[in-house]
Amino acid sequence: MTPQEIHDALKARFGEAILSFDEKALDPWALVKPEAIAEVAAFVKAEPALGFDNLMCLSAVDWPKETPPRLDVVYHLYSYKHDHTFVLKVQVPRDNPRVPTVEGTWGVANWHEREAFDLYGVVFDGHSDLRRILLPDDWQGHPLRKDWEDPELYNGMRVKPTPQMAERYAAGEKIGVGPFDFTPPNLPLEQS
């Protein structure tokens, strides 16, 4: 099916819950109401004409400068049976990002949703085991949000560039690689 036909099938079934549709994008996507995403997911997998049996990727995007500030959760779907793809998106407010889980539809969403929770702080309601997957359990905050600031210390280890690095840089050591060359912390980054 073409993206337009997939969208029409979704629109016929869910109506107002399908907010918008972008066919011109490289991966055509439909915007879904957050409350409806679990039912939409179950539908697109169960409906024989759609047959989206594979959740290729579940990711999140941070938009802190939009009004209101929001987080997107993006679902890349694929059907092995029909060899077609589609993308679903939901938008949730940045200060209270809650999305129903799609773990019951695609089992792989368990780890994907844990990753989105770990790095962006999106809370997936109904998830069976929502805890951090990559970062340590005692980590504070969600570091892929765009307003993330490194803490000074994590468990006694420095997270920001260390004072010794400036001395080693002055002594001639090359720190960093290629475009990420070291700037001593006492200089503003713009001057380098």
Partner: peptide
């Protein structure tokens, strides 16, 4: 010394 992660590596030991 942290290599390419010296500045933006929130997760890397320096």
């Amino acid at each position: 010394n942290g290599g390419p992660y010296w500045r933006h590596g929130y997760h890397v030991l320096k």
